[in-house]
Design a protein around this nucleic acid. Structure first.
Length: 466
RNA sequence: GGCGCCAUAGCCAAGUGGCUAAGGCAGGGGCCUGCAAAGCCCUGAUCCCCGGUUCGAAUCCGGGUGGCGCCUCCA
């Protein structure tokens, strides 16, 4: 397996710290709002990575956090009147619901920042003792970037010219790049926790280092974990700072490999709240099945930007439709391992998750299967192997696992289904007496409802096509 | 100002020195069908521009143009 390591800036051979096991940590969301498409893309990227590693035979330990204490959460509390617990739980539930709809496998552990305070204290204490951190009279504790000779070596992105860099200048900070490990309690309206350093709350970066240390880190290797992932915008300062804290505090580097996924864009620009162009996953799910959204977001290589638009989404849906039409042709058949597909699919994915080639393999499988089924419609073994192939695709790519009839009838209310069935029955009557005019009229009527029908040897079936 | 990414057919998108530049969507033609749909077959690009390296470049180097990202909360 080869992966693009952002730190080294090139594809490198993946060799886990310990044989047969891979430990992955992915930066999860700060839960102050619903998940947008960018969250979805990040989740899907690392879900694919996990599935590929598992298919390769690795035992994968996968941790993804919820940051449940933060300025933005406190601000939102002020707007909704909810408690910290109520608000964050609500958005955690929402996030899990959305990712579930996208068929993202649940992480093995989903730690929360507020449940990891003791480890934060341990890390901050170590940094204070070793002189890598200092506390201001207002209670804030900062990491002293000037004390860390390796600061900026991870991302290579640190601002050279302080005059131009848009770094927040807080009174008392020794260096502009110094970042808060702990924020002293600011009194009324603030959310504060007791700590050995006085009441306050964690800074933004500390939770990830603490959670990795608590839940995932090896203690006997130069790196705590194998892979650390997240969106490209987290490389600096977030990941740089995590690495600095962990390395200075524990003597171990944080991760052997750093992976970053590209952005979702709208009209060529990064999707973001401030531009007012973000799309919530839950809204996209109103118009499209989760699997379609999954397939679309996954079909562009994870490091390339993905310019979100409905036309491309529809194009991706049509591509996925073909898999489900094939699945109809082997409906109800007991799957049997496909002789070659798993290896063929894994081969391109081993190369830094080359999904384009992977999907070309899927397309080829669909085409060949259709061809063979036409030639040998009674071949039970063939059908079982095709069903097995679809299972492999579901296992690795995460699509194709639904009932094909339900897939094509997604979002159709029960009463509409009844109406469709009735029209099809009427058309069948017309066909029996060779009343083609009526039959075609009914077909056209269904077409206008967005329903496309197919006459097959075993009856007429229908699909929602728009 | 610093660092970095991208530019391949109508659209999406592989390809990182060499057979006829993957695959999908859309379009056109055909087989099949009462007619359709689905499926299958056939069908399209010399790779932003200029210069260089090389026997040979979409792929390497230099310059240019255009687009984007991080350096501020951000997946």
């Amino acid at each position: 397996m080869v992966l693009f390591d952002s730190h080294r800036g090139e594809k490198v051979k993946f060799e886990p710290l310990k044989p047969d096991e891979v430990r992955i940590y992915v930066c999860g969301p700060t839960v102050y709002d619903d998940a947008h498409l960018g969250h979805a893309r990040s989740s899907l990227t690392f879900d694919l990575l996990r599935r590929v590693l598992e298919a390769e035979g690795y035992r994968v330990k996968f941790v993804k956090n919820f940051t449940d204490i933060d300025d933005k959460i406190i601000k939102k509390m002020g707007e909704t009147g909810e408690s910290l617990e109520e608000l964050t739980q609500r958005y955690i539930d929402s996030y899990l619901r959305d990712m579930g709809a996208l068929k993202v496998k649940r992480p093995d552990i989903e730690p929360r920042a507020t449940a990891t305070l003791p480890e934060m204290f341990k890390l901050i204490s170590a940094l204070l003792e070793k002189g890598f951190a200092y506390q201001l009279p207002n209670g804030d504790i900062y990491f002293d970037t000037s004390k860390d000779p390796e600061y900026c070596q991870l991302s290579h992105k640190c601002p050279q010219d302080e005059g131009v860099a848009r770094v927040e200048h807080t009174a008392g900070k020794r260096n502009p790049a110094d970042f808060a490990l702990w924020k002293g309690c600011k009194g009324e309206g603030d959310v504060c926790f007791d700590s050995p350093f006085g009441a306050g709350r964690p800074g933004w970066h500390i939770e990830c280092s603490a959670m990795i240390w608590k839940h995932l880190a090896y203690s006997d290797t130069p790196y705590q974990i194998d892979i650390h992932g997240g969106g490209a915008d987290l490389f600096f300062p977030h990941h740089e700072n995590e690495e600095a804290q962990t390395f200075c505090g524990t003597g171990q580097h944080l991760a052997k490999y750093w992976l970053h996924n590209g952005f979702v864009k709208i009209d060529g620009e990064k999707m973001s709240k401030s531009l007012g162009n973000s799309f919530f996953v839950k809204d996209a799910l109103k118009s499209y099945p989760g699997e379609v959204l999954r397939f679309y977001l996954l079909s562009t290589h994870y490091r390339a930007p993905l310019n979100f638009n409905e036309e491309d989404l529809l194009s991706a849906k049509r591509r996925l439709d073909r898999l489900y039409r094939l699945k109809k042709r082997v409906y109800g058949v007991k799957p049997e391992p496909h002789p070659t597909l798993k290896g063929e699919l894994l081969e391109p994915l081993r190369d830094d998750l080359n999904i384009s080639k992977g999907l070309a393999v899927v397309d080829q499988f669909i085409k060949e299967s259709n061809e063979k089924l036409t030639q040998n419609p009674k071949d039970k073994r063939l059908k079982r192997q095709i069903a097995g192939g679809i299972e492999i695709i579901d296992q690795i790519i995460g699509v194709g696992g639904e009932d094909p009839y339900r897939y094509f009838q997604w979002g159709i209310p029960q009463e509409t289904k009844a109406k469709i069935e009735e029209l099809i029955a009427r058309r069948l009557e017309a066909k029996k007496v060779k009343d083609w005019t009526t039959a075609d009229q009914i077909r056209e009527q269904l077409r206008e409802m967005g329903i496309q029908i197919q006459d097959t040897p075993t009856g007429t079936i229908w699909e929602k096509v728009e």
